[in-house]
Nucleic acid binder design. Structure first.
Length: 480
DNA sequence: AAAAAAG
């Protein structure tokens, strides 16, 4: 299976090749033809599965023909966080470089001026977080009546963040006759309801079981006394061949203090959390991406969807309170088939949280014993932890190979020098099974039908005249 | 128990 077989245009294939990709991931293989056919779509996929390109690529082709109009964006992508929105925008730039497309990134924390200006000049694609979008809408800077393609990304995250009423609100402002794509890692009932209400006859694609963790990631948990946390972390950073690491903490204050502490100890560390202004957030992320810093201490603002290449390690300085967050956090490593390592520090108080994580991920996480040379962790502790595992995982445990001994018990001797960048885990191109092959001839026919509807030949609309398909509400009122 | 998002 290659990108060329999915029905994408030549220009687009060129930019995909230029970006270094030749084989679509499973979600791309399944979603792209469907999006090109203008079908609604529900995509159940974890981050790191190539989900973003699965809607960005076909959208570029869909939008390639058509007119921009002032204040009337032609498509809208909703993202839960500013960073994710910016990341999607980067994707549009990367793959859309051979196309004449204008986009606007509508996120909070930055000046409105440029965003308003872009809207006035007309954009093909709007990438937005809900708050700023609503704000600009209420100020009359956007008309959503021409927006017939909507992407709701990370829907479950939106739910967690209380955005669902906003999303519903926004949906009602878009033309009823439109294409809607909804992506989510899980399908809790409120998301199901949202999909039932705003999508019609969607194609359903599921590429990875929700709440399972990537098998490329080697996981460990490390029991620590509260006071040893930083020391244990530093030890692991020095001895586990760490190339690039994200360290998650539960609180913004912890993030700040930990970053400061690590810097004091000579680590090239930075920080990211929601109390920082947007420009610092972007700057820190850039420093991390370009290698100026090798360690990023983060709150859960960076837990989901953030795509930084070559992150060798994820450390949970705090055990996450919600097991979902664990899955998302460690998913920042082992991306795109690369290998990764994830360590979770836990204290006596975190036993329940750890058990919940293990229930979700489907097995006990092997214990890593860190000996700081002061007799901090004893065999007795390990034995006790092992019995905790047995309690928590119940009958699942019988199905698994016993893993009572740490899989990778490390030598305690500190190694000061960090591994050179070349020693980082190498990304392997490992693709899973392909979607069934499509017959090209049928595919072409469907595309033509669609283009007839949306592309080249539409006469220009006069002001106030509806140019697209007849909106549902008009059709309904005509029947009455 | 927190974090995120509008200002």
């Amino acid at each position: 299976m290659s990108f060329a077989e999915l029905g994408l245009s030549e220009e687009l294939l060129q930019s995909v090749t230029a970006a270094g990709y030749d084989t679509p991931t499973p979600i791309q293989a399944q979603a792209i033809p469907s999006v090109l056919m203008m079908r609604d779509l529900i995509g159940i996929a974890q981050t790191g599965t190539g989900k973003t390109a699965s809607f960005v690529l076909p959208m570029i082709d869909v939008l390639a023909h058509g007119r921009r109009r002032a204040l009337m964006p032609r498509s809208l992508i909703l993202e839960p966080t500013r960073e994710l929105a910016a990341q999607v925008a980067e994707n549009f730039e990367k793959y859309g470089k051979n196309h004449d497309l204008k986009m606007a990134l509508l996120i909070g924390g930055v000046q409105m001026g440029d965003q308003v200006k872009a809207l006035q000049e007309g954009v093909d694609v709007l990438i937005a977080t809900p708050g700023r979008l609503m704000d600009l809408f209420e100020r009359g800077k956007i008309l959503l009546t021409g927006c017939n393609l909507l992407v709701i990304d990370e829907a479950d995250r939106m739910l967690d963040m209380g955005f669902i009423p906003d999303i519903e609100n926004i949906c009602t402002k878009l033309p009823a006759q439109r294409q809607t794509l909804l992506f989510s890692a899980t399908m809790p009932p409120p998301i199901k309801k949202l999909a039932d209400r705003f999508l019609s006859n969607p194609k359903y694609i599921e590429v990875a079981r929700p709440a399972t963790t990537n098998t490329n990631i080697v996981q460990h948990k490390v029991k620590v006394g509260g006071k040893q946390k930083r020391e244990v972390l530093r030890h692991l950073l020095r001895t586990d061949n760490v190339g690039t690491a994200i360290i998650f903490a539960n609180k913004k204050t912890t993030v700040r203090e930990l970053a400061k502490s690590l810097k004091r100890h000579g680590f090239a560390a930075g920080e990211i959390h929601g109390d920082m202004d947007q420009s610092s957030r972007i700057a820190e992320l850039d420093r991390f991406k370009d290698g100026s810093i090798s360690i990023l201490v983060a709150s859960d603002v960076a837990a989901r969807g953030l795509d930084v290449k070559g992150v060798s390690h994820v450390f949970n300085f705090d055990t996450p309170w919600h097991p979902d967050d664990y899955v998302h956090r460690i998913g920042r490593t082992g991306r795109g088939g690369a290998s990764g390592r994830a360590f979770t520090l836990f204290t006596e108080d975190d036993l329940e949280a750890i058990q919940n994580v293990e229930k979700l991920t489907g097995g006990p996480i092997p214990v890593m014993v860190v000996d700081l040379g002061k007799g901090s962790t004893s065999q007795a502790d390990e034995a006790k932890l092992d019995s905790d595992d047995r309690k928590s995982s119940g009958r699942n445990r019988r199905d698994k190979a016993p893993r009572k001994e740490p899989v990778a018990r490390e030598e305690a001797a500190p190694v000061e020098a960090r591994a050179p960048r070349e020693d980082r885990p190498v990304r392997e191109e490992r693709r899973e099974e392909r979607a069934p092959r499509r017959e090209p001839r049928r595919e072409e026919a469907r595309r033509d039908e669609r283009y007839g509807r949306w592309r080249d030949n539409d006469p220009p609309a006069k002001p106030g005249e509806w140019n697209g398909p007849i909106p549902e509400f008009l059709a309904v009122s005509a029947l009455k």
